[in-house]
Design a protein around this nucleic acid. Structure first.
Length: 401
RNA sequence: GGGGGAGUGCCCGAGUGGUUAAAGGGGACCGGCUGUAAACCGGUUGGCUCCGCCUACGUAGGUUCGAAUCCUACCUCCCCCA
């Protein structure tokens, strides 16, 4: 059958090779070797696939590594196809049972998908993006599913090393997990993917998609894996559930502040993966880190926000002054304020924890450390006071009417 | 279908009748040093009406002066044999 693969020239032209190299920048692998150049050598836009899991809607900087790559393809005129894995999410992956992952309702999945798209289009060009839900084609007849399942063997599916490790550790692997690569691969068949992107952890699934496409007599996609961005702890991958993430919708001061906490050792990595450049030569780590913060805040907010965020940082963390704007907390009109209770309410901690930070000298009133005793203060004495817990939690007290 | 093993605090993981709110590690929080970096050091880490009380070791009962530890049933998971 005539297809894109059939009239492939033996050697891609130099232009295609050059473009392929450019598009592969930052990637860990682009497979098979020379595949992308060959695809680019043919005319017409390529279909670039990215599958996303709609169980967690918020996009963080880790996701943007892949999204930026998609945007780069778009800039060259290619078509991005975003696949929202609503069907697989709806089935509910039982493998996470130890993580007590709740099965999401269709409404939640739709809401998450909407949020995700909203955030993704801060990076991607909407006009060059096709959004598809995989329930569209995965809601298939059992007969069709069986025929899909017949295209792979268990041995092949078990090859992936994370399964191997789990088997050795005696941890469970659900049948659905085993099937996952098949379903993901079928997505590629359904949308005629030319290139599929993903993190390095997706390598197996991405390559498996090629086999499935071939089994259905389709041209095979090439795959490109991107590095995994470490979180602000500098060790584990950035992820919302690990709490080490920077969300693209984080407020400017928070985004800047979190970036400043990234370990120096990861600075070059952050520059390369997020800005596509090396830190300016000759800059000290702190200078390079500030510049990183300014640029990223400017990207996801704007220049003015970046300036303000840096000023806020200098004020609160370098000079240890109270921030310009502090949320108010209303205290009851008369009588005493029981500090542990007030702290609990103000900062969403328990009263016991309030007592603890107080005892540890972690609570300040207008910059002065409060002693462990007393616990109660007359309301008028605290009216207007700025209460601070630790380095970055502030509230201004206001006596109620 | 048969046999064996496991469920502990945010997570991992000790503990097999009392001095256990439960070792140790991780994480988190507070403090020190700083560039809110990392590393490092010290402290804290169930709740509350906090020098005491309450609730906790899968769930529900039971034995005992006393149980996370023993018994019974149930739930969930893992492994092996078929």
């Amino acid at each position: 059958m005539p297809g894109k693969t059939d009239n492939r020239p033996a050697v891609p032209g130099p232009e295609a090779q050059e473009l392929a190299a450019r598009l592969s920048s930052n990637s860990v692998e682009a497979l098979p070797e020379g595949g992308l150049a060959a695809q680019l050598d043919r005319d017409g836009p390529l279909r670039i696939k990215l599958g996303i899991d709609p169980t967690a809607p918020d996009i963080h900087l880790g996701h943007t590594v892949v999204l930026n790559k998609l945007a780069q393809f778009q800039a060259e005129g290619h078509q991005v196809v975003l696949i929202i894995g609503d069907y697989t999410a709806r089935v509910g992956d039982p493998s996470g049972r130890s993580e007590q992952r709740p099965v999401l309702t269709p409404e939640q999945i739709d809401a998450n998908a909407a949020t995700f798209q909203d955030q993704a289009f801060r990076i991607l060009d909407r006009s060059q993006t096709e959004v598809r839900f995989n329930s569209e084609w995965l809601r298939m007849e059992a007969e069709d599913l069986f025929s899909l399942m017949a295209k792979a063997t268990i041995a092949r599916l078990l090859e992936r090393d994370d399964f191997q490790k789990r088997i050795e550790a005696g941890r469970p692997i659900s049948a659905l997990e085993l099937l996952y690569p098949l379903l993901q691969g079928y997505d590629s068949v359904a949308i005629d993917a030319d290139v599929e992107l993903g993190g390095t952890d997706q390598k197996f699934n991405l390559l498996f998609g090629r086999d499935i496409q071939a089994a259905y007599g389709r041209p095979q996609q090439t795959v490109m894996t991107m590095p995994i961005l470490p979180g602000i702890d500098g060790t584990r991958r950035m992820s919302k559930s690990l709490g080490n993430y920077i969300g693209v919708t984080d407020p400017p001061e928070e985004m800047f502040g979190k970036l400043m906490r990234v370990p120096d050792a990861n600075l070059t990595e952050y520059w390369q993966l997020l800005l596509g450049a090396d830190p300016p030569a000759g800059d000290s780590p702190i200078q390079a880190k500030r510049e990183l913060g300014r640029r990223l805040v400017a990207r996801f907010h704007d220049e003015a926000a970046a300036d303000l965020a840096e000023q806020h940082f200098d004020r609160v963390f370098v000079r240890h002054e109270a921030p310009e704007e502090i949320e108010e907390f209303e205290i009851a009109g008369d009588g005493d304020v029981h500090l542990p209770a007030a702290l609990a309410e103000m900062f969403g901690i328990s009263r016991s924890e309030g007592r603890r930070v107080l005892a540890q000298g972690g609570v300040k009133r207008d910059g002065e450390v409060l002693p462990a005793e007393p616990l109660d203060y007359p309301v008028p004495e605290l009216d207007g006071a700025v209460i601070q817990v630790g380095k970055r939690r502030f509230r201004r007290l206001r006596a109620g009417a």
